[in-house]
């Protein structure tokens, strides 16, 4: 058997998986009755709906021609996500200024055209600009530097 619309097929299977996972997890909560719904009622209902929708997407994909699976570009994806995560961790331990430098430096790797000097300048500009607006003007309770 040949999958004729790859995008729809895998997309549909993903939805079926999500729906099934929700149904399984929702068994932990009381289901109740239609008149007095428990916390498990809606999740089970929605999970089933999700799974059915996934099937209506995946099954016709076997018969009707469609798009091939799109290519994922790992470099921008990984670097941007990593940059945000590093921002969070740095902010917790080293403060706002270091976090902005870390974010710009890591996320900057997502774009090979960006030169190191440009990264440094953008980071410096963002530190000055956002400290001015968020900390000085709006007075948000943000820690600028590491404690001690």
């Amino acid at each position: 058997m040949r999958i004729r619309s790859q995008t729809d097929f895998w997309c549909g299977l993903l939805f079926v998986a999500v729906g099934a996972a929700v149904i399984v997890l929702a068994q932990e909560y009381r289901f109740g009755t239609s008149a007095r719904m428990g916390p498990g009622y809606f999740p089970t209902l929605l999970g089933s709906l999700m799974a059915v929708l996934g099937l209506t997407l995946a099954l016709p994909a076997l018969a009707i021609d469609g798009e091939r699976l799109p290519k994922l570009h790992w470099r921008p994806l990984a670097m941007v996500l990593l940059g945000i995560a590093v921002f969070g961790i740095t902010l917790e331990y080293l403060g706002f200024v270091a976090a902005i430098f870390a974010l710009v430096a890591v996320a900057g790797l997502a774009d090979p055209d960006l030169k190191p000097i440009e990264i440094a300048l953008v980071a410096l500009f963002m530190v000055l600009f956002s400290t001015g607006i968020f900390v000085l003007l709006l007075g948000l309770p943000i820690r600028l530097w590491p404690n001690l």
């Binding site: 941007v80 940059g83 996320a107």
Partner: peptide, 10 residues
């Protein structure tokens, strides 16, 4: 784009 990301994070 780095500036956009900084604003999103903040």
């Amino acid at each position: 784009f780095p500036a956009i990301l900084v604003f999103c994070c903040i």
